[in-house]
């Protein structure tokens, strides 16, 4: 009795006024439950995730470190994926660079009429996404009197060539000192011995530093899953060039590596109606590209950037 009285008289005692609040423990419990439910709901969009890589895909090594057996297995796996997705069995190669070959490209600025057939031949050949639309080649409509990209225009339409303008297609220049390969944090893009700058689509982490570093706006990123209709698939594929890509990786012109390493011309060249595009082996003195470098007036776009491109612009004289 005395204890009770003491307790009530103690300045520490105060009856708990129920109804005015909850204890911390209760609050934390409710908040934790609510947060857990909200967190689960927050992650619920992941239900739509269709492309979870298998363990093999996830652990795949860099292309330059693959043994021939691993390469074969990977090519088989990718062919199977393409077959499943598109219903077409591809012919997927991983050709090594040719000896004694240094590729270069030349573009006749006096003859290009800006018809953009090269753009779409490239799209058709390289299995590019139709939506979002990816074009490796940008055709600039330049104003006569200067080589000034600031006054150029890429969205001209109608009959070409237009008076007072000339045309300059730009694609990856496959530079000898590429800024893109220098800045890639994982070496997912590198320069092959025959001069082609390639991307290993299974190694790229999608940071887009290479896109920031390229002075020619040559690199493209897959912001969404690329959409390619089945009937438009080109089954002749190369691992480093035109096999279908995934969301979140970079891609760009590869000089049609799967064609050119087999000795063929790139698709953009084959379609050009004015014959403005020239391609070949710089080391072969009989090639048209060597003749151009030797005999024609050649210049390099944005030469002051110091990237030493393998893409030359020339005029007929």
């Amino acid at each position: 009795m005395a204890d009770e009285k003491d307790q009530h008289d103690s300045p520490y005692f105060h009856p708990k006024p129920y109804g005015s609040g909850v204890t911390r423990r209760q609050f934390l419990a409710v908040a934790a439950a609510g947060a857990a439910a909200a967190a689960a709901a927050a992650l619920s969009p992941l239900k739509d995730l269709t492309q979870i890589p298998t363990l093999r895909q996830f652990l795949q090594k860099h292309y330059t470190e693959l043994t021939p057996e691993e390469k074969k297995e990977i090519l088989g796996r990718i062919s199977a994926e393409v077959r499943e997705k598109y219903g077409v069995t591809p012919h997927l190669t991983a050709q090594p660079p040719l000896d004694g070959v240094q590729f270069a490209y030349a573009l006749n600025m006096g003859r290009c009429i800006g018809c953009r057939k090269c753009v779409y031949a490239c799209v058709n050949e390289n299995n590019q996404s139709r939506d979002p639309q990816i074009h490796y080649i940008s055709v600039l409509e330049m104003e006569k009197g200067a080589v000034n990209v600031e006054t150029s225009n890429t969205d001209y339409e109608g009959q070409v060539p237009k008076k007072g303008h000339y045309y300059m297609p730009v694609q990856c220049h496959h530079c000898e000192k590429p800024p893109c390969t220098k800045v890639c944090p994982v070496k997912a893009t590198w320069r092959e011995p025959d001069g082609i700058v390639v991307v290993d689509y299974n190694w790229c982490i999608g940071c887009r530093y290479c896109a920031a570093a390229c002075p020619y706006h040559a690199r493209r990123f897959n912001f969404k899953e690329p959409y390619l209709p089945k009937e438009d698939l080109n089954p002749e594929m190369g691992y480093l060039s035109n096999r279908p890509r995934q969301v979140g990786v970079m891609e760009k012109c590869t000089f049609c590596l799967h064609r050119t390493r087999a000795g063929k011309y790139p698709a953009c060249l084959e379609v050009c109606p004015t014959g403005s595009r020239k391609f070949g082996n710089l080391l072969d003195p009989d090639s048209e590209i060597a003749a151009i470098i030797r005999d024609k007036r050649v210049f390099i776009l944005k030469q002051e950037r110091g990237t030493i491109p393998r893409f030359y612009y020339f005029t007929d004289v």
Binding site: I113, G114, R116, V119, Q133, T154, Y156, Q159, V160, P161
Partner: peptide, 8 residues
């Protein structure tokens, strides 16, 4: 002159 293919 020819008709240019569509702009990007």
């Amino acid at each position: 002159p020819m008709l240019a293919a569509p702009a990007p």
